[in-house]
């Protein structure tokens, strides 16, 4: 027998830690989605597809701008001392992933705005000369568009990575304490981003390409999930207990059904059949991928807080 009684009953801490509610998973999901879309837009910019009128690289910056702003609102809502939010930008704490994240987010906005100016319809550009000069600066030289594409990929990867590192740096929560978590969040972000762009793009080539690519991203995500569980189970007892929350414990049904089943396996099978022209294209598969990404963030954040030493 080992019975522990604690007299502490602090709000949000006891009996089980639950300081992060819906705001953080929503932010991590939207951040991941934007990261994925930025990588895709970066690839299309780098390969010069922005010259095509229907290219998704022209609307991705707009969608990213909106989703990232929504994510940041969720992040802001989570803060308990909202009036002091500016404190994030009076310092840079090199050891804090959250500090890295707040500066990455700040740097992403100007990059997105440049992409928006390049993607704006001509009638708006002609009205304002400064917009025209910014666009001309980039569009007239291929090397500049390529450099912008590289910046999109770089910051997309940084955004996707940091959302995972943010959690995995918390050694006190064994479920998060695995260095592969950022790979999971990044691959989930790219697969979600590819699904979203595939759904809304009007460019047939890009839509088909992203459908095929999404199958690869989903497969990678599946392997990373398995690797994460294997690594946790083989680390220590507390890490094994944490992994068990997902494998057979409190979050198992939600994890296997919503994340692995409906979020990865089912859409992957549908999309493989679609790519091979066995079934007709249906929009439900990419929607499932996106919702699977949301479920993944909710489950990892909640189960992680439940895991302890």
């Amino acid at each position: 027998m080992n019975e522990i009684t604690i007299t502490r009953n602090n709000e949000l801490i006891d009996p089980l830690l639950h300081v992060w509610s819906w705001e953080i998973p929503v932010y991590l999901f939207l951040g991941g989605l934007v990261a994925g879309m930025m990588i895709i837009a970066g690839y299309f910019l780098y390969t010069g597809r922005n010259k095509k009128s229907k290219s998704s690289s022209s609307f991705i910056p707009f969608v990213s701008f909106a989703l990232l702003s929504l994510g940041m609102i969720a992040l802001f809502l989570d803060l308990e001392n909202k009036l002091y939010v500016w404190r994030l930008y009076t310092t840079f704490e090199i050891t804090s992933p959250m500090s890295w994240g707040s500066w990455i987010l700040l740097l992403i906005y100007p990059i997105l705005i440049v992409g928006m100016i390049i993607g704006l319809p001509d009638k708006y550009i002609e009205k304002y000369s400064f917009l025209r000069s910014i666009r001309t600066f980039f569009v007239t030289k291929t090397s500049r568009v390529k450099a912008l594409g590289m910046l999109y990929i770089l910051f997309g990867v940084m955004l996707g990575m940091y959302t995972g590192v943010l959690l995995s740096s918390m050694g006190a929560r064994p479920l998060w304490s695995t260095s592969i978590l950022w790979v999971l969040f990044l691959s989930s972000g790219i697969s979600g981003g590819a699904a979203l762009v595939h759904m809304i793009t009007k460019d047939k080539y890009e839509s088909d390409l992203l459908l095929k690519a999404d199958n690869i991203f989903l497969s990678i995500e599946l392997v990373v999930i398995i690797m994460m569980l294997v690594s946790l189970v083989s680390t220590s007892e507390v890490h094994m207990n944490a992994a068990m929350l997902l494998i057979s414990g409190e979050y198992a049904i939600r994890f296997w059904v919503l994340v692995v089943g409906l979020g990865i396996l089912v859409p992957l099978i549908i999309q493989i059949l679609t790519v091979n022209n066995i079934v007709k294209h249906i929009v439900i598969a990419p929607i499932m991928v996106i919702l699977g990404g949301l479920a993944l963030r909710f489950i990892i954040v909640a189960a992680g807080q439940l895991s302890h030493w």
Binding site: N81, Y84, R173
Partner: peptide, 11 residues
């Protein structure tokens, strides 16, 4: 200086 992000609480 604290913004109430709760990172320290989870750490």
């Amino acid at each position: 200086k604290c913004i109430g992000c709760k990172a320290c609480i989870t750490a």
